[in-house]
Design a binder for these strands. Sequence first.
DNA 1: ATTCATTAGTCAGCAAGCTTAGCATATTGT
DNA 2: ACAATATGCTAAGCTTGCTGACTAATGAAT
Lengths: 153, 153
Amino acid sequence: MVQPSLPEPEEGDHGPMANWPTGRLLSIAGRLVEQAWIAALADHGLSHAGFIALHLIGTGSPSQTELASQAKVEAQTMSRTLDKLERDGFIRRSRDPKDARRHVVSRTVEGEKAWDSAKHLEAEVFPTVSHPQELRDALIELINDGTRKRWQS
Amino acid sequence: MVQPSLPEPEEGDHGPMANWPTGRLLSIAGRLVEQAWIAALADHGLSHAGFIALHLIGTGSPSQTELASQAKVEAQTMSRTLDKLERDGFIRRSRDPKDARRHVVSRTVEGEKAWDSAKHLEAEVFPTVSHPQELRDALIELINDGTRKRWQS
DNA sequence: ATTCATTAGTCAGCAAGCTTAGCATATTGT
DNA sequence: ACAATATGCTAAGCTTGCTGACTAATGAAT
């Protein structure tokens, strides 16, 4: 085989993805955009998961369970993400004196710095699409639906 | 702090996600929908990645590299997905007699059966959204853009 | 007061992305 | 013909989703 065996998307058709399940388009698009974020965040010493956590922590001191629920991940996943952030010096965990089961999480000075340096990356990372508002609306619908089904909240 | 520190989404606003980066909405929505697929596919003995591969194989005999490129994953990832499908008896790998470096992949009879039983799940799994066509268009744009950037094709 | 259920967090192990580093086979250049 | 390069696939190890099982602390019920 001497010529490239990959059928390049030809002008005029809508590509091989035209009849794929929407869920698959969603997964793939999500992964690809996530990769772009990962690449951009690496320069700031942050992972994608850590960046989300740092955002959600904000200037307050939420518990790990609250963070997990807002990020729509399981508590165990959030725990591990926070492990790494803590190890890297971006956050601090301390027991809640009012309820010793809870760990309240807050940004360190380093964490503030990292967040400030990374928070503007959206424009640089996310490509332009034709219907940005419809896209966001649909995604929020999907998240609400999926969250309801998974955690019957 | 005695009252709950979580700002519950108040009636009248658009929820806490209204000003999140679109990329994050995309990742989360993708994960949630993927979970729904995983749950539905489990009854048919298939994983999400395996289902995609089985779809792309179709009735032909593509090489692993071709499959990876169509699925937009790295060849190594596809290799492992095919390992599992092969172990489970859904596909068969054989060396291409024309080029002994290539492994051509085809469905077994079991694979055909599994595919036939699972291929209609889209309707059952994917929730209704307000702008399905705009969503699909935007996702395809994102995939094309991301693919171009990652594999400069 | 003691027991029992619930809640917050962690640990271990699986799945499927990724990267880096091989090995085997083909192809190309001298 | 043979060395160098390119290509297809696999292996190993990281990350971050997941689930299931565990501990510690709290709160409720007897």
